[in-house]
Amino acid sequence: MSGHGLKPPVGPSDHVEGPADAPVTLVEYGDYQCPYCGEAYPIVKQVQKKLGAKLRFVFRNFPLAEAHPFATGAAEMAEAAGLQDKFWQMHDMLYEHQDALDPDSLVEHARHLHLDMAKLKTTLGSSAVAEHVRSDFMSGVRSGVNGTPSFFVNGVRFDGNWTDADEFAAALEAVANAV
């Protein structure tokens, strides 16, 4: 479809890095077990560095559960870590250890980040994190996500090239300058 727009817009339930008043908001729909998202991870880091305060980065979950059996568990772990204010630490940990996303490894990652394990167990046992992940997924479907990773720049799906950090950053700079 043409004119894919982000639904809903970035809000209080989102995980955000960067200033709220940044001229460019980059939203990624990603899957922790997807190799292409793994490729995108260091590129996004570089782009964040290049754009600095001009960029606000948001991550939403889009686990392709049928293709990637550990993707949903990993997404729920990141959300659970988020409830202990460690979403981004867990997000980074997962993308830096994409070969270790099985349930035992996830617990190891949680220990490594010094999460409160009792609280974590309660959180993962409740339906709240699962609902958050599912709601991210459906918002992605409604927004026109067609694979992972999918990026949205200021609410519009980005169909350009993200695989080259310089090119990606230049595209975002152009948006920043046009605002």
């Binding site: 899957d31 190799p35 292409y36 049928e66 479907v141 694979g147 992972t148």
Partner: peptide, 16 residues
């Protein structure tokens, strides 16, 4: 050769 291909996506959205 992509994970999020069209049929894989519909497979995930099937319940909807």
């Amino acid at each position: 050769p992509v994970c999020g291909d069209q049929m894989a996506l519909y497979n995930e959205v099937l319940p909807e």
